[in-house]
Amino acid sequence: MLKVLSKLLIALSLYSGLVAVATSPTYFFGLSDLTANPKTKHLEIIHQFTSHGIENAIAELKQINFSAEHKYYNLYIQQYFEQKFSLERNKIQIPLTWLGFEISSGKIIAYQESKQQNFLPQIVVKNAILIDTYPKQVNTVNFQGKDLKGVAFFGSLTFDYRRKEAIIVAQRDH
C-alpha cells in the first residue's frame, strides 16, 4: 500500500511539475513602444507581452482561475495594465486612455493613448508589468518623439525587479 502511495506521490509531483512548465512563459521579456505622434499631438503606447504571462499574473494577483473564458477577461487585463504601467510628469500622473487589446500568436498587444501630453523629455515611466510575478522579467520601453526644438530623439529604458521606474532623457538623433 505504501509503495502504491509513494508511486502515486511521485507521479503527482512529476505531473504538477510538467503542468507548471507548460503554464509558465518560456521567455521573460516585455516590450512597450511609447511614441509622441507629431500629427495628432498624442502619446501612443503599444505593449507586447505574452498572453500566458499576463493571464498567470492576474490569476496570481486575484487568486482565481483566469483565462479567455473568464467573464471579466477584458476588464481584468485592462485593470492590470493600468495598475502596472503609468507615466508621470512633475509627480502628477498623466491620464492614459485604454483603447483595448488584441491577441496574436500568443502575445497580448495592448493599446493606450494620452491626449494631454505629447512631449516626452522628463516623463517618468513606471513599469512593473509581470515583474512582481516573474523575478526574471525584463521590460523594455522604446520611446521616440521630438524635443522642444523639434529635433527628433529616441531611446530605450529597461525595467526589472531592481528598477521599476525611470525618467526619459532626450538623446539626440544624429
Binding site: E44, I46, G100, I109, Y111, E113
Partner: peptide, 11 residues
Amino acid sequence: QSRFDLYKAKK
C-alpha cells in the same frame, strides 16, 4: 500606417 492607427481603424 502605424500599428496604432491600424488598431484604431479596426476598432
